[in-house]
Amino acid sequence: ASVAVIAAGTQGNIFATSALRSMRFLQILRMVRMDRRGGTWKLLGSVVYAHSKELITAWYIGFLVLIFASFLVYLAEKDANSDFSSYADSLWWGTITLTTIGYGDKTPHTWLGRVLAAGFALLGISFFALPAGILGSGFALKVQEQHRQKHFEKRRMPAANLIQAAWRLYSTDMSRAYLTATWYYYDSILPSFRELALLFEHVQRARNGGLRPLEVRRAPVPDGAPSRYPPVATCHRPGSTSFCPGESSRMGIKDRIRMGSSQRRTGPSKQHLAPPTMPTSPSSEQVGEATSPTKVQKSWSFNDRTRFRASLRLKPRTSAEDAPSEEVAEEKSYQCELTVDDIMPAVKTVIRSIRILKFLVAKRKFKETLRPYDVKDVIEQYSAGHLDMLGRIKSLQTRVDQIVGRGPGDRKAREKGDKGPSDAEVVDEISMMGRVVKVEKQVQSIEHKLDLLLGFYSRCLRSGTSASLGAVQVPLFDPDITSDYHSPVDHEDISVSAQTLSISRSVSTNMD
């Protein structure tokens, strides 16, 4: 405001104040949320940038038409019409005319000016109207692209899951042992070998009828009888010197917790746990005396209480009078009846079946994303299906024409109403129809010849004498029936064969 007042002088105070007050009108834009329509302006900018070359070309040609039209109309009207006294007036008329506004304040009066105005109007309006069409088509394409992008975003994750499931299904095939990355992934998420051994031990116990592997080994086996189970490696608790092959000598807290839970599941009659010990102070733990958990001091820290809870689970003690015997301790020893080589084939089979199920689920979810969402998608899918159906029908028609023997030239002739090819031409065609016709002709010829021969033979049998045999009239074959199959017997006289037959029969009768 200060700059405006200084620039306008003393009389500019009122002007500056009114100008600043008129800017209050811009507050109405906040009512229509114009300040939060950044996406709309961004869309407009992207459309203009995408079609910038077309817009520049249309505007450039339109500007050239405007300059030439205004100049030529000015030359034609400057002497006869006072409205075109300057080139600026003519340029104003050209702008209003070519933009199809047409105020009518300035019009050419001479015939030359009117002809020039009409010609440049028809030429220039087309170029001035091009930017509107370019922007409209650009907006339509952009909206369609955003629509497809939205659908693509919805299909991206199911497609990625389907590709991942397909690759993992491919890589978990037993015949592709060189693909090891997927197996490394499952090695990292699978439970430890100790848990798998416990699982298979329970399965084997159920197969043995509820007997433990130790009891199965204690059962008497006759001499020479084959053992029911192959000899396997035996594993004891981590306190002993022997372990399962492939295990580490260090046992983690999870393994100890699972070991304690498995020992508690063996039965309360074979294992008696004394009350857990509780320390009397955060600094020292008295293991010899058993106290109640309700006497825990409230001033303990979080670490002390955590250690106390761990001691409740991981440090059970047995009383002296209830101490288990050596046999019970041997039964409680952890027996590992299986090795990694025995378990891994079954584990890989389970993983393979899981990968198949996940692949089928991913495939079903991806197919669900291909379903249409709204009416536009339904129409688009219907149009695509219609085009596909037309293509299939056209391909089927082409194959039928190839089989029947109607080529493209014959199809055009039928469409024009011309006469089709004759039967002889159809026979000569190298097509399925021509071959079928040729075979039918040959079969008819053979059938006719057989009928003639059978009739001749029956007449010979009825006559009974050589004289009557020679008097029999043998009809000749019709050459038209034989089609294109020409037998060497067709052109010979059958009477010669009949005479030869009669001579042979007379000779045979004389010999008798």
Score class of each variant (00 low, 15 high):
487 S>G: 13
220 P>A: 02
241 T>S: 00
207 R>S: 05
304 D>N: 15
344 M>I: 04
270 K>T: 10
315 K>I: 14
261 S>T: 11
390 L>R: 14
212 R>W: 07
308 F>L: 14
235 C>Y: 08
334 Y>F: 11
498 A>S: 12
348 K>T: 09
199 L>S: 14
324 P>R: 12
257 I>L: 00
256 R>S: 03
488 P>L: 14
177 A>S: 04
426 V>G: 14
175 S>R: 00
465 T>S: 03
239 G>A: 15
375 V>A: 09
315 K>Q: 12
479 P>R: 13
471 A>D: 15
410 D>N: 01
358 K>R: 10
383 S>P: 14
429 E>A: 01
455 G>C: 02
208 N>I: 10
203 V>L: 03
422 S>A: 13
225 A>S: 08
316 P>L: 14
457 Y>F: 14
204 Q>R: 02
189 I>F: 02
299 S>T: 12
454 L>S: 08
434 G>R: 12
171 S>T: 06
208 N>S: 07
464 G>R: 11
249 S>R: 10
329 A>E: 07
470 G>V: 02
418 D>A: 10
404 V>L: 13
194 R>S: 05
345 P>T: 02
456 F>L: 13
224 G>E: 02
233 A>S: 11
356 I>T: 00
240 S>T: 10
361 V>A: 07
440 E>A: 01
316 P>T: 15
263 Q>P: 15
498 A>E: 09
327 E>A: 13
348 K>Q: 06
414 R>W: 04
241 T>P: 01
382 Y>F: 05
266 T>A: 15
275 P>L: 11
253 I>T: 09
473 Q>E: 07
299 S>R: 06
409 G>V: 12
232 V>D: 12
419 K>E: 03
229 Y>F: 05
343 I>M: 09
493 D>G: 14
496 V>G: 13
469 L>Q: 03
329 A>G: 11
452 L>Q: 03
367 K>T: 02
304 D>V: 15
253 I>L: 02
287 V>E: 03
501 L>F: 12
431 S>C: 08
400 V>M: 02
449 K>T: 09
202 H>L: 08
464 G>S: 15
242 S>F: 05
229 Y>H: 08
193 F>V: 14
402 Q>L: 02
387 L>R: 15
475 P>Q: 04
373 Y>H: 01
473 Q>H: 07
502 S>G: 11
329 A>P: 01
391 G>C: 09
343 I>V: 04
306 T>P: 12
185 Y>N: 12
300 W>R: 12
338 L>H: 04
401 D>Y: 13
180 T>R: 06
479 P>A: 15
298 K>M: 12
177 A>G: 03
442 Q>H: 13
321 E>Q: 12
288 G>S: 12
384 A>V: 08
340 V>E: 06
340 V>A: 01
246 G>E: 13
414 R>Q: 10
268 P>R: 15
413 A>S: 09
487 S>T: 14
353 S>C: 00
396 L>V: 09
447 E>A: 03
496 V>D: 05
169 L>Q: 01
403 I>T: 12
381 Q>K: 01
493 D>E: 13
393 I>V: 03
373 Y>N: 03
493 D>Y: 07
304 D>Y: 13
265 R>G: 11
188 S>I: 05
342 D>Y: 00
365 K>N: 01
326 E>G: 04
264 R>W: 11
351 I>S: 09
347 V>G: 10
176 R>Q: 09
455 G>A: 08
489 V>M: 04
253 I>N: 02
179 L>R: 11
249 S>I: 06
467 A>T: 11
360 L>V: 02
451 D>A: 04
482 T>S: 03
311 S>C: 14
221 V>G: 04
410 D>V: 11
506 S>A: 15
245 P>L: 03
415 E>D: 12
502 S>C: 15
261 S>I: 14
433 M>L: 01
350 V>I: 01
472 V>E: 10
287 V>L: 08
450 L>V: 04
424 A>V: 09
312 L>M: 03
243 F>V: 03
174 M>T: 08
512 D>A: 07
289 E>A: 01
466 S>L: 13
391 G>S: 14
295 K>M: 04
315 K>T: 14
471 A>P: 10
276 P>R: 01
499 Q>K: 05
220 P>T: 11
238 P>Q: 10
437 V>I: 01
245 P>T: 05
288 G>A: 15
389 M>K: 10
427 V>G: 07
468 S>R: 15
313 R>T: 12
433 M>V: 03
334 Y>C: 08
229 Y>C: 06
231 P>T: 08
461 L>M: 09
197 A>P: 01
328 V>A: 06
288 G>C: 07
414 R>P: 10
339 T>R: 10
188 S>G: 03
362 A>G: 01
366 F>V: 01
196 L>Q: 07
259 M>V: 01
279 P>L: 10
375 V>E: 10
285 E>Q: 02
231 P>S: 13
448 H>D: 13
310 A>T: 03
206 A>G: 10
422 S>Y: 08
330 E>A: 11
236 H>N: 03
465 T>P: 06
426 V>L: 02
508 S>G: 07
268 P>H: 08
230 P>A: 01
358 K>M: 02
346 A>G: 09
500 T>K: 01
463 S>C: 03
417 G>A: 05
224 G>V: 09
501 L>P: 12
476 L>Q: 09
503 I>S: 11
349 T>R: 03
241 T>I: 10
409 G>A: 13
194 R>G: 10
481 I>F: 07
497 S>T: 11
232 V>I: 02
495 S>P: 04
426 V>M: 02
488 P>R: 15
206 A>D: 01
283 S>N: 12
442 Q>R: 01
284 S>R: 01
249 S>G: 04
410 D>Y: 07
194 R>K: 06
196 L>V: 05
415 E>A: 11
439 V>L: 05
321 E>A: 11
240 S>R: 06
511 M>V: 15
447 E>V: 11
401 D>A: 15
436 V>G: 01
291 T>S: 11
203 V>G: 08
215 E>Q: 04
508 S>N: 10
239 G>D: 04
489 V>A: 13
301 S>G: 15
222 P>S: 09
168 R>H: 06
323 A>P: 06
439 V>A: 05
413 A>T: 11
220 P>L: 11
484 D>E: 13
194 R>I: 14
431 S>T: 01
196 L>P: 14
258 R>S: 00
293 P>H: 12
276 P>Q: 15
272 H>Q: 01
226 P>A: 05
261 S>C: 10
270 K>N: 09
282 P>Q: 04
275 P>S: 04
440 E>G: 00
480 D>E: 12
189 I>N: 07
306 T>A: 10
413 A>V: 10
320 A>G: 15
295 K>E: 07
509 T>A: 06
440 E>V: 05
438 K>E: 04
262 S>Y: 08
272 H>N: 10
212 R>L: 01
251 M>T: 08
503 I>T: 11
356 I>V: 06
503 I>L: 12
405 G>R: 06
209 G>R: 04
332 K>M: 09
300 W>C: 05
478 D>Y: 09
472 V>G: 15
465 T>A: 14
385 G>S: 15
238 P>S: 11
173 D>E: 06
480 D>H: 14
